[in-house]
Computed example of a mutant assay.
Amino acid sequence: MLALLAGCKTITVEERHLIRPDALSGQAPKQHLDLPGAKEMELARPEGAVLKGVLLEKPGAKLTVLYFGGNLFHIDDAGDKVAKALAPCNVNLAMMDYRGYGRSSGTPTVANMADDALAVFDYLDQRYPGAVAVHGQSLGSFVAAQVARHRNVAGLVLESTTTNARDMVNNSIPWYFKPFIRVELAPSLLAADNTAQLSHVQAPTLMMTGEADEVTPPALAQKVFEALPATHKRFVVTQGAGHNNVLSNPATAGALCPFLHAPAML
């Protein structure tokens, strides 16, 4: 009713509305998390930011998974949950806090998050040549897609993903307001398009989404899946899972571990 009385309204969405580093969100990570056996990683960037993360190596592991978390992800809050979920898969696991989040310094943008991700991948690929897969959740799925677009990744896992920034914003607007709202996105956000990035990706890909995900609905994830030209790909809808609990769902290891061990991955 308010929208009707006020007439149509234009909403401009900037990067700061979707990328929420600690300085904007006010969310500080918990006390430094001690992950048994983890080695600390540190990568200095040309602009002065320092990326910090951890590497957990498993004896005999043939694959290393580089994990990109969602918005508000901190290693010290959720790194142990990611490590626990991937433990049955017997892979090495690398995680970095985005710049401006948790352990890492600097200010994130769409552009430098993509550049940082490529730099971290290159660092790991030198250590484990041709045996690094990328896994991205929510916001991290856009980062992982960028890496898969520009590097020869051993495999790609997209969790709780969606098509593009515009669809994500539109999905957050109640249907009864949509006739009265016009959304404009910053140019950098318009470039955040998974369907466009992944249309060039041939790497083996696993997509996992929650059946009850209201943030990035399965219908949008399905569109991303259809854009993939890869011949080795699988789409899994986890029953009862929402946006942030796909990886912790007991059914996930049954899909994730066999994918990471598939011959096409190595």
Rank of each mutant, 00 (worst) to 15 (best):
M1Q: 08
L2M: 03
A6M: 11
K9T: 12
T10K: 09
I11M: 09
T12K: 12
V13N: 05
E14W: 15
E15W: 04
E15L: 08
H17N: 13
P21K: 13
L24F: 02
L24W: 12
G26I: 14
H32N: 04
G37W: 03
A44H: 02
V50I: 13
L55E: 02
E57I: 13
K58T: 13
P59I: 03
T64I: 03
V65M: 03
G70Q: 10
H74P: 07
K81V: 15
K81Q: 14
K81F: 11
A85C: 08
A85H: 07
P88I: 02
C89T: 07
N90E: 11
M96C: 01
R99N: 12
G102V: 14
S104H: 04
G106M: 03
T109I: 14
V110R: 04
A111D: 14
M113L: 15
D116Y: 00
V120Q: 00
D122S: 00
Y123Q: 00
L124Y: 03
D125H: 01
P129N: 04
A131P: 05
S138A: 13
G140T: 08
S141V: 14
S141N: 08
F142D: 10
F142R: 02
A148C: 14
R149E: 15
R151H: 02
G155A: 14
L156D: 02
T161N: 11
T161Y: 00
M168N: 15
N171K: 04
P174V: 07
W175H: 10
K178M: 12
K178Q: 09
P179V: 14
P179S: 03
L185G: 06
P187K: 14
L189K: 08
A191Y: 02
A192S: 05
N194L: 10
T195H: 02
Q197T: 11
A203H: 02
T209V: 15
G210P: 00
T216N: 09
P218E: 07
P218K: 15
A219S: 08
A219T: 11
V224Q: 10
V224C: 09
H232M: 09
R234P: 00
T238R: 01
H243E: 11
L247E: 03
A253E: 05
L260P: 07
H261V: 13
M265I: 15
